[in-house]
């Protein structure tokens, strides 16, 4: 007697949507912040200043060597303390913010390596041409090198972001109601846990696989 009963999914859809909105919001903010921080780390890593490049190298190696789940749970406790240390008084930092900071800092290590490879793939001549026109290092990077590097690295950056989309589900560890956590708790409440998890699986698959297919096509187009 293994009949499935999906009858309770309809009524639960608004709640599931809220969960998905949280997942996507977390994803978008984490990707933006992660890419921004990753770019700074990549430029530090490429700098001739030993201190800057050494610091960035340590950061990248460190975050690439520890589990994401650890970072999430750890930041849940640490981020409020840091906020308190900065602002001097206690501020209630929600699980969302601490998760966001954790993702941003963790993913930045991966984005940094992608951006670094992208910047290195642009010939030195482009930098020289920018300098020869009187641009500063900042202008040359912002206007000439990074736009080209990002164009080249876009498929890799997106692929990394799809992985992050799946990894956002780890926020269950600190009780954040993302899509997966919402599906699980709703399924438990109505007594249809398997059906809700199957639905969640299908949704994650469709989004990730669909996005991945689009990225592969983009990659092929960029390759020619």
């Amino acid at each position: 007697m293994m009949g499935f009963d999906f009858s309770q999914i309809g009524p639960a859809l608004p709640g599931l949507m809220d969960g998905m909105v949280l997942t996507l919001k977390l994803l978008l903010l984490a990707v933006s912040g992660g890419v921004a921080l990753g770019t700074v780390l990549a430029l530090m890593r490429l700098s001739s200043n030993r201190l800057l490049s050494g610091g960035a190298k340590f950061y990248v190696n460190y975050f690439r060597s520890i589990p994401l789940l650890l970072v999430i749970t750890w930041f849940y406790f640490v981020v409020p303390l840091i906020f308190k240390w900065i602002s001097g008084e206690f501020v209630a930092v929600g699980a969302f913010t601490s998760c966001l900071v954790a993702f941003m800092m963790f993913e930045a290590a991966y984005y940094a390596e992608i951006v670094r490879a992208g910047v290195q793939s642009i010939s030195k001549g482009q930098l020289n041409a920018a300098y020869a026109l009187g641009m500063t290092y900042g202008q040359a990077m912002r206007l000439i090198i990074l736009p080209q590097a990002f164009r080249k690295m876009m498929p890799l950056l997106l692929q990394q972001s799809i992985i992050l989309f799946q990894d956002t589900s780890l926020v269950y560890a600190v009780g954040l109601m993302d899509f997966l956590n919402t599906a699980r708790s709703k399924g438990d409440i109505v007594g249809q846990p398997n059906e809700f998890l199957i639905l969640a699986g299908v949704v994650y698959f469709v989004i990730s696989f669909g996005a991945s297919t689009v990225v592969k096509r983009l990659q092929k187009r960029l390759a020619v």
Binding site: S123, G125, Q126, N128, A129, A130, A132, I144, P147, Q148, R151
Partner: peptide, 13 residues
């Protein structure tokens, strides 16, 4: 000072 390079180095983007 203007400079012209062997490989042109126009900005392709």
């Amino acid at each position: 000072i203007g400079m012209v390079f062997q490989n042109f180095e126009l900005f392709p983007h």
